[in-house]
Amino acid sequence: MKVPTEPVLRARALGVGYRDRQVIHALDLRIEPGSVTALVGPNGSGKSTLLHALARVLTPTDGVVELDGTPITSQRSVAVARRLALLPQSALAPPGATVTEVVDQGRYPRTGALGMLRRGPDDAVREALGLTGLEDLARTPVAQLSGGQRQRVWIAMALAQQTDLLLLDEPTTYLDVRHQLDLMELVVRLRDEQGKTIVMVLHDLNQAARHADRIVALRDGRILADGPPAEVLTPRVLHEVFDIDALVLTDPVTSRPMFVAR
């Protein structure tokens, strides 16, 4: 049995909404340090909205998000950016900017006002390019890259922030099978080797079950199931959350649960 730890990130009675629509309702969530959490749920269930609120990119309508025990919105945004990096889905490729230039933006929270006059990419940028396999594309304009290559650029930018917390919104979108697997292995490695805490929105439930320590299943802005993959990936939960009739098997490679729709 694990010793209970202080959550590094915590939502208390969190409500998030847009002008006329409440997306998240009175939600409580604790994220333990050094864990990989997958947020899953059907389209419109609020999982991305929850992730953005955890990253203080969206302001809650009710409740509070705490980072290290303090409300995240009361901390300096740059200080938060040194603790927590967000990979959003809505990143724009600035016309003309090269891969290195974009990844270098990840150093923003760690460089002073005159940091722009640095000589070039620092070690963190080079390491991030290496971890995402982008060395050969370093000088290529991002606008010329494929969707999957661009996705890796945004991931590298988040890594260059060198934060303990990584919040990833559908990080495997656009990636081919090889790169999806590479990325999931990178996530697990970052947890094991650097003790990083990762929260990611995933669409692929089997992927979540295979790589995450914990799955949080949302529907209509509420948590319907929360626990290790073996507890969440059950026919009952799959029916309640996704309206699917599923057969749950044991993955012969990882011994984790996996599902097949009937």
Binding site: V57, R76, A79, P88, S90, P94, Y108, M116
Partner: peptide
């Protein structure tokens, strides 16, 4: 330096602490 981050979109810029 901050304006440069805006070119990546408002969510990314906010995430970077801008």
């Amino acid at each position: 330096r901050s304006v440069a981050a805006l070119r990546l979109g408002d969510h990314v810029a906010t995430g970077l602490g801008v």
